[in-house]
Design a protein around this nucleic acid. Structure first.
Lengths: 314, 314
DNA sequence: GGGGTTGTTTTGTCCTAGACAAATATTGTC
DNA sequence: GACAATATTTGTCTAGGACAAAACAACCCC
């Protein structure tokens, strides 16, 4: 029961929506016959909502290693089946959690129950503590919500509501942590094109509970500005968050560029779901695919740094 | 004092770095003869770091209202002179804010003093209360910071830091307000293309202190999803925030589209700095250019609504 | 002089279609 | 089964043409 039909989207909107470049969209159309957009009076492409949805699904599956040739030819049902198979596979390796937390979150989300969500998430945060909340609840819940959306089980607006509430809750949690003063001094942000703030906040939380001195610049800071800010602020580490929405190759290029702009004494820590699936990595950048690795990494840094400082002093 | 020699950049890297699209870069080269990149063995453009730097400067001056035609023809020295002239000119017209609140914020921002900012803003929030904090401090401060950035007085990274801290503080303030239960029931979000979350949070705060029942979907919700969510949630009002970054025509089109999708019983309140300068407005949408108008609008709604309810009951 | 309408220039984005290198799959060989 | 050589797939670049939206300029009217 749809109140109205979604408007057809221009190619630039589809690029934003799916993360597939305009060039790629045109090339698929040329090679595989899909997508097959309508044309407006001016001969420009207009993508029906249905095709945009299918493209998003394809884009997600590409990140799991499947090839375009197979995917673009398949019907929507086959794609959904593939998505479910991929999910089942990744669910095996995921830690099994008390399902009550997840199920309740889902139920409240479906009902658009903002107050209920707030109470529920806040209670979970208080019960688990900030660190366990992030690692054991938020991280798997994010994956679950993303999958549920791509299978059409929840609406975009409900995914938005989830993100908004979770962000709110993480900020509440962060507000209760006394600002850290210990080294390393970490500057947090994301590179241009990475819009997901939740990943950044999760990292921030995990660092804050270790007493690390953090400065967050929010999302989408250009490499030049990161370098300049790190220099002026005297940061020891630049921490960056990467969601699966970003193309690995693109992300690696930006990282290498940033690496060249920063002095060698400043470390780069690149975290986020993107690195769980990406093989190729570059030197002089620390890749962190799971947040629970952070405490060990911080401890290691502190040990090294203490050593360095002694050496410098001596 | 660069840490390393920066290599010539490919066109995709220049796009990221400057924010100018590939098409635009190629078009400028065709039309104005600048930039004039080298070519690699394969005939692809390679931009020397020097030209990339100049492009960055041009991109910044464009944001101040200067036109490409003039800028791309000029030498680097002329561009810098222009930047300084633009800065001097806007410094004259800038309102002089003698308040200690503003000056302290600026000073802490310049020092990248995250902890100091947090303490300072939190104190301001506690002293003024959420409503006055938003209307008397955040709103003018936003304008000031935007101006300071476009004049080159603060770096992008410092504007990012400001936004991040203010957002954090507003969320802290919102977290302390007991969830509203009174009508109207407002669903808050922004339309696609509008990325600024701060405006939305400011509106959220002003509504929350009036005891209004709010649900925020965060930013960039497509019109169809807003309509669907409003229907399922039974919202009385859809509240949207528009920054000056959006093109008025585009914004009005999207608003009209949304208006057509929502039942007439659901009001649309469109707020934000965009409407202070835009004449053209459309019927059946309430435009709110300043946040201090909100209490009166809510009171008016409640009176009307009470009337309607009585009429329905009788 | 301010405010609105009209015409002109500027400017960004989209189009087609060809080319090629990097990434990935497949085959052949030990 | 491991490794090298070859074939296919795939994304991104190139060139120039077209056009509509935005910005600017000129004009008229109050």
């Amino acid at each position: 029961m749809q109140p109205a039909e979604l408007p057809d989207a221009a190619i630039s909107a589809v690029e934003r929506e799916t993360g597939l470049s305009k060039d790629t969209l045109r090339m698929w159309e040329r090679r595989y016959g899909f997508p097959s957009p309508l044309r407006d009076a001016n001969g420009e492409r207009l993508y029906p909502a249905e095709q945009v949805h299918k493209l998003r699904l394809i884009s997600r599956l590409l990140d799991r290693g499947l090839r375009p040739r197979q995917l673009v030819g398949e019907a929507l049902e086959q794609l959904i089946a593939r998505a479910e198979a991929a999910e089942a596979k990744s669910a095996e390796s995921a830690p099994v959690l008390e399902s009550a937390l997840f199920e309740t979150t889902l139920r409240l989300l479906r009902a658009y129950d903002e107050t209920g969500l707030r109470v529920h998430l806040s209670a979970a945060l208080q019960r688990l503590g900030l660190q366990r909340f992030v690692i054991e609840f938020v991280a798997p819940m994010n994956r679950w919500v993303g999958d549920a959306w791509s299978r059409g089980q929840i609406a975009i607006s409900q995914e938005h509501l989830y993100t908004e509430q979770m962000e709110h809750q993480l900020r509440q949690g962060l507000g209760a942590v006394y600002p850290g003063t210990h080294r390393p001094s970490v500057m947090l942000t994301t590179l241009p094109g990475e819009e997901h703030q939740l990943g950044l906040l999760m990292a921030h939380a995990c660092l804050a509970v270790e007493g690390v001195r953090c400065v967050s610049l929010g999302i989408q800071t250009p490499a030049w500005d990161i370098a300049e800010a790190a220099r002026q602020h005297g940061a020891d580490v630049v921490g960056l968050s990467f969601s699966e929405a970003l193309r690995p190759k693109h992300a690696l290029e930006m990282l290498q560029d940033l690496r060249a702009r920063l002095p060698a004494s400043v470390e780069i820590w690149a975290g986020g779901a993107l690195w769980a699936r990406t093989r190729r990595q570059i030197g002089a950048v620390r890749f962190i695919s799971r947040l629970d690795q952070l405490p060990a990494i911080i401890a290691e840094y502190r040990e090294h740094r203490a050593h360095d400082t002694r050496a410098e002093a001596g």
